[in-house]
Design a protein around this nucleic acid. Structure first.
Length: 505
RNA sequence: GGGACGGUAGCUCAGCCGGUCAGAGCAGGGGACUCAUAAUCCCUGGGUCGUGGGUUCGAGUCCCACCCGUCCUACCA
């Protein structure tokens, strides 16, 4: 058994969540549930990044205090926990969680003690939306490539972090695999960025420009800690850095794996700045960073203005949490962005869940009820007709383990569908209804049908077990209906409903 | 400008270190069955594996160039 910690990035809460957020939450949740099922000691964490300047502006625009604005919008993210059937152990809000500020201050003090901070005047083009400086050349027609807004020309005296000191050590950590960046193409991308030369970066903003929102720099009330420095710290402040050292040791320093799940847009912060900050402060580094791609929706980049920012809460309500979970796991490619459409979700749900797995469970449970009054026969020691089914069933767990280790959720999900396929094929080949008729009309012995039914129940139970991390709600239903390993099945009831799109769409 | 990753059947995609690698699923066509959520099973694919070269006995699978897409990175007029 090992100790496993997995974390999402914390989204800044301005605006509503979209399917892209759901993707990251679901992937992380599946990793956590998977490890728990295997018996590991697991801690899964998410939260919200509240201290961005953007929140101040939005709050001002609405004429409400920042605190209450942030509390309100954060609810949209918090509520996804239930809507998507997530199993996070912790949710940290950087503005109001009492654990956060002391930890950030401690981290700051540790970097300062190392001599990694210095003051410098900086002039640059700053995009408030990104909370990031851009070089002239990075802009698209003078506008932020992410937000399409004109960045502000900013000149101020800030604290800088000596990132340049850590260039070699960072390259070593990543190329050696001690800090594993996945997929490999992302690791190469990070390494080439590091090798191109790292420059110190600014880790504070003037109190004035931050409108007083954020965490003041210890010993310098004129400056506020840069929101990225602040936000990244959540990964250690939540487990107790700066507030509960015993807990922190347990859930960070002494954990066997510390895994970040992030989107491709913030690799630099997580694979370069963050490990460097930790090295500076003398804190253990994360062990893995899994980078996912982005989702588009209806063929376009997700944005509020395009009107395609699908609300995952609404999707889950409309199609079911497990249908949405299944889509993000089964249909999202590892390389390249994937387009979300309702149609794709519905197709996946109907093909894999309703028609394949759901129907197999349904026909199995129905037959056990019809032919054996719900009593599950004993599994035959020898069943030549089920050789292939047994082979596929027995191999699934290892194949899934391999896929999960590579963060290949799609392949893992496919393995489960293959088990369902083989189960359905077995039903056709074994024709239990013919065996039942033979018992009735020809007084045939029950052993043949017993063996088939037992094989099918075993398959459905295995499907339920394999699905636990992916579709927790539905997996529980399958297991319950199949008798939970006991001697009887329940009444048949469709586990997955067939979905339809409104004709209007 | 440099680099990464994609470009494989109508659609979504598998194809590791070169030799059943020309595939799966969906869609389409035909058939079977009835236990089941009009579900399932079987049969059915005349695709220049982005383009052009090269290496090799043999290349989606390696090399070079180019085109298209996406993404990193870069203060050259």
């Amino acid at each position: 058994m090992s100790r496993y910690v997995v974390m999402t990035a914390i989204p800044y809460v301005n605006g509503r969540p979209h399917v892209g957020h759901a993707l990251e939450l679901i992937e992380t949740d599946v990793l956590a549930r998977y490890r728990r099922q295997r018996g590991d000691e697991v801690r899964a964490q998410t939260g919200t990044d509240d201290n961005a300047l953007k929140n101040v502006q939005s709050a001002e625009a609405e004429g409400v205090p920042v605190e209450s604005y942030v509390e309100r919008v954060a609810q949209n993210f918090l509520s996804l926990g239930q809507a998507l059937d997530l199993s996070f152990d912790d949710f940290i809000k950087t503005s109001s969680d009492p654990r956060h500020r002391p930890g950030v201050e401690k981290l700051w003090a540790a970097c300062a003690a190392r001599g990694d901070f210095y003051r410098k005047t900086y002039t640059g083009l700053y995009c408030t939306g990104c909370e990031q400086f851009y070089a002239e050349s990075e802009l698209v027609e003078g506008r932020c490539p992410e937000h399409g807004t004109v960045p502000d020309l900013v000149e101020e005296d800030n604290w800088f972090f000596r990132l340049s000191r850590y260039q070699d050590r960072l390259a070593e950590e990543i190329s050696s695999g001690r800090l594993r960046v996945e997929p490999a193409s992302r690791r190469r991308e990070v390494l080439s960025f590091i090798e191109s030369g790292l420059e110190d970066f600014s880790v504070s903003r003037s109190m004035k420009r931050a409108r007083g929102w954020g965490i003041p720099v210890p010993g310098d009330p004129e400056q506020v800690i840069y929101v990225w420095y602040d936000a990244l710290a959540n990964y250690i402040t939540a487990p107790g850095y700066g507030t509960d050292e015993a807990r922190f040791a347990h859930w960070w320093t002494e954990a066997d794996e510390r895994v970040h799940v992030i989107g491709k847009g913030i690799i630099r912060f997580h694979a370069v700045y963050w490990p460097a900050m930790l090295m500076s402060a003398g804190v253990t580094l994360p062990s893995q960073i899994f980078v996912h791609e982005y989702l588009t929706a209806d063929g376009a980049k997700i944005s509020k203005s395009a009107g395609n920012a699908k609300d995952p809460g609404e999707l889950a309500e409309r199609f079911g949490a497990d249908a949405l979970r299944w889509w993000t796991l089964r249909d999202v490619a590892r390389a390249g962005d994937t387009d979300y459409t309702d149609e794709r979700l519905v197709t996946r749900n109907n093909e894999d869940l309703a028609n394949n797995i759901g129907n197999l469970v349904n026909r199995t449970v129905s037959m056990v009820n019809r032919y054996r009054d719900g009593a599950v026969p004993a599994l035959a020691a020898d069943n030549p007709g089920a050789a292939e089914l047994r082979r596929v069933r027995a191999g699934a767990e290892a194949q899934i383990a391999e896929a999960m280790d590579a963060y290949d959720f799609r392949r893992a999900a496919e393995v489960i569908v293959r088990v369902g396929d083989e189960g359905n094929r077995y039903v056709e080949a074994a024709t239990p209804w013919v065996l039942a008729k033979a018992e009735r009309k020809e007084d045939a012995p029950p052993a043949a049908l017993d063996a088939v039914l037992a094989e099918l129940v075993a398959t459905c139970r295995e499907l339920g077990r394999l699905l636990v991390p992916f579709l927790p709600g539905s997996a529980a239903k399958i297991l319950r209906q199949c008798g939970d390993g006991g001697g009887r099945v329940a009444e048949p009831e469709p586990v997955f409903r067939r979905l339809e799109l409104d004709p209007a769409e």
